[in-house]
């Protein structure tokens, strides 16, 4: 498996750490209520197909959002998380 770090280019999967759905970007306000926080921390769409998730390129310390397919493992794009529209 090969992932493209937006800064370093395409690298072996060994250089990356995966960390879940990109919904992590949208952290609720602290008073958003238990439902919102349960949704944020625990509940998942968990799609079989297209997904957006977070990958960390360990050697350069960069977080990226990958648009990816959980069935085929195809990676359609990777974007610096700091450049993802919020």
């Amino acid at each position: 498996m090969r992932i493209t770090c937006p800064l370093c280019g395409t690298r072996d999967r060994r250089e990356f750490t995966w960390q879940g759905d990109a919904l992590a970007i949208h952290r609720p306000a602290r008073d958003a209520g238990p439902e919102a926080w349960d949704n944020y921390i625990h509940l998942r769409e968990n799609p079989a197909g297209k997904t957006r998730d977070l990958w960390y390129h360990d050697p350069c310390g960069t977080w990226a959002v990958a648009e990816r397919d959980t069935v085929t493992h195809a990676v359609h794009s990777t974007t610096l998380v700091t450049e993802v529209p919020r």
Partner: peptide
């Protein structure tokens, strides 16, 4: 920390 700084 990188996560918090870049993602959140």
């Amino acid at each position: 920390l990188d996560f918090v700084a870049q993602v959140l």
